[in-house]
Design a protein around this nucleic acid. Structure first.
Lengths: 194, 194
DNA sequence: GTCTATACTTGGATAGAC
DNA sequence: GTCTATCCAAGTATAGAC
């Protein structure tokens, strides 16, 4: 598999556009025609950079996961206690939400999983694994230090928290008065604060 | 718009199949060919019952919401306290989850909203509104009676809870060791119990 | 209510010139 | 790196017979 770090500038522009399209319409909802129009080139030019649509899907997910990890590192550097870290984490989703009520790429691809090539699903699974791992780490630290109530395993808490974030993006799409991921996180965090 | 209650038996078999397909692959992920094959008829026969694909999508969502409301009524009849009701509610999602890791129809359609006809989106919005309303009712009763901690408005709690359920279905799709909606709900309920 | 046949469009993908 | 031209499959939808 091609790696996102090998992308030429032209290829990167294509991936940028594909990311936007997947966020908005999903993998099954965009075509090479849409993509080419957005980039300002013609359909066949895309094949000079990518072998097939599924490769593009996989690379979008791969790069997204990579950037998300960078954000997690930044949060670890900038904050200390669990609650603040989780708020910063929720703000990553809130930013996505505020940008045209976009979805998390991997939330979208996760929903579509049954009709997606394995190549793509593998990357999506990695995204969720990375998130669960990070959240588990943060939450178990919070439990140890006493700022998070010890009502369930850190792993269980992590999963619920991630679920809430992914769900908030989806329900926020069609509900005009939805409050968004940050608010949803605040509710959970209030319930978990000791 | 046609209503789901007017469906002939033949039309109903088509809606049944469409529901399964949307749950699995999404609105953009299934074709009339798939649908016809599943029902055991030919593509054009579908048009005898439905004018277009979007009508089918809207009716699937409409019937799904109707049945969901029946389930909510059943829960109200069979249980009393907020926590038990919310567990029963989570079990509705758990059942969906255990059935081939299916998605909530409206979670799927919500994710795809940007590429869906208004006709469909309107029904999806109704589903979420119904759920939020019901959860708000249950939660505010729980707060009044003291079984649910008063850490946020019933409306905010309702939204977080629904988000968690929808998200659990999505993250559960690609994560082999995901715990599912019921477990996610138990975590939240433990945090909300006074 | 279902069929065959078919129209028309779009979608993913390739060949080969510039 | 991008283009035109083109292929073929699939997708939605219609006409009209049974």
């Amino acid at each position: 598999m091609k790696r996102f770090s090998d992308l030429t500038p032209a290829a990167e522009r294509i991936v940028d556009a594909a990311e936007l399209l997947i966020k908005s319409k999903g993998y099954n909802g965009f075509s090479f025609e849409d993509l080419a129009r957005q980039v300002g080139i013609r359909k066949p030019s895309i094949y000079h950079h990518f072998e097939a649509k599924m490769e593009l899907g996989a690379i979008v997910a791969q790069r997204y996961t990579h950037r998300f990890r960078e954000s997690l590192l930044r949060i670890e550097g900038a904050t200390v206690d669990a609650k603040t870290r989780l708020q910063a984490y929720a703000d990553l989703f809130e930013t996505t939400y505020r940008t045209n009520r976009s979805l998390c790429i991997c939330g979208m691809l996760g929903a579509e999983a049954d009709s997606l090539p394995d190549e793509v699903n593998i990357e999506v699974r990695r995204f969720f694994a990375v998130n669960i791992e990070w959240l588990t780490m943060v939450l178990s630290e919070g439990i140890m230090k006493g700022s998070i109530r010890n009502i369930a395993s850190a792993q269980d808490l992590a999963e619920s928290f991630l679920d809430t974030m992914e769900g908030a993006l989806i329900t926020g799409r069609t509900s005009p008065d939805a409050r968004g991921p940050r608010r949803a996180a605040d509710v959970i965090l209030a319930a978990l604060s000791s």
